[in-house]
């Protein structure tokens, strides 16, 4: 397990509480994890409590997908902000830019702290979608962009719930519990905008 590969200033900003007291969960949070998902040999802060930044496979799966998805969201939003003439769509893109950049950076730092290799660019699916969106204009663009955002928010909502239940890193799970309501709110906002768009626009 590679630990703490970031500069101390960043590490301090997103530090995992290291004391057992700070690890104690509250009823409002993610609760205790299932030790059956804890890899053999995981360091413990106390009996039954994984030490900070001791990730299991679900934590890693989440970080990998979330880093890619978060960065893509920002990139798509920038494209929409430049391309769309629809007020609702532009406002949605601006909201995405405003609200996603912070969490995306936090997730990227957690991924780096966990020793995951850096991710650059879009994944294959999103790259194909981005290329298609780049060729569209007007109502067709708006529809395709919002469709892509609905899919992304659906995936992210499931992914957050997945790591809340199956992850073991307290900091990561706390971040996921913080982000899930907002993600669902974004999804509902995108679905509401979809209802206002021209249903005959190209999909």
């Amino acid at each position: 397990m590679r630990l703490c590969l970031v500069p101390m200033s960043l590490a301090a900003a997103f530090a995992m509480p290291s004391t057992l007291a700070a690890q104690t969960a509250q009823p409002g949070g993610a609760g205790q994890g299932n030790p059956a998902g804890t890899p053999a040999g995981t360091h413990e802060a106390a009996p039954g409590v994984p030490a900070p930044r001791q990730l299991n496979q679900a934590d890693r799966n989440f970080l990998q997908a979330a880093v890619v998805g978060g960065a893509a969201n920002v990139e798509f939003a920038q494209l929409a902000d430049r391309t769309s003439g629809n007020t609702g769509v532009k406002q949605f893109a601006e909201r995405t830019l405003r609200e996603h950049q912070g969490p995306s950076k936090r997730i990227a730092i957690l991924a780096r702290n966990a020793g995951l290799p850096p991710v650059q660019g879009l994944d294959a699916d999103r790259k194909a979608t981005y290329d298609r969106l780049s060729k569209l204009q007007g109502a067709a663009f708006d529809r395709a962009y919002i469709d892509s955002q609905i899919t992304d928010q659906q995936l992210m909502a499931q992914l957050l719930a997945y790591v809340i239940g199956s992850g073991q890193d307290r900091e990561l799970k706390d971040l996921a519990t913080e982000l899930l309501p907002t993600t669902l709110d974004h999804l509902q906002a995108a679905q509401a905008i979809l209802g206002t768009l021209d249903s005959t626009a190209a999909k």
């Binding site: 030790p35 496979q57 992914l159 997945y162």
Partner: peptide, 19 residues
């Protein structure tokens, strides 16, 4: 593993214990 917009399989299938 993360290139596709696909959720992790253990979000559906129960994984075996690691320890």
């Amino acid at each position: 593993l993360c290139l596709a917009q696909t959720l992790p399989p253990d979000a559906t299938y129960r994984p075996l214990p690691s320890a």
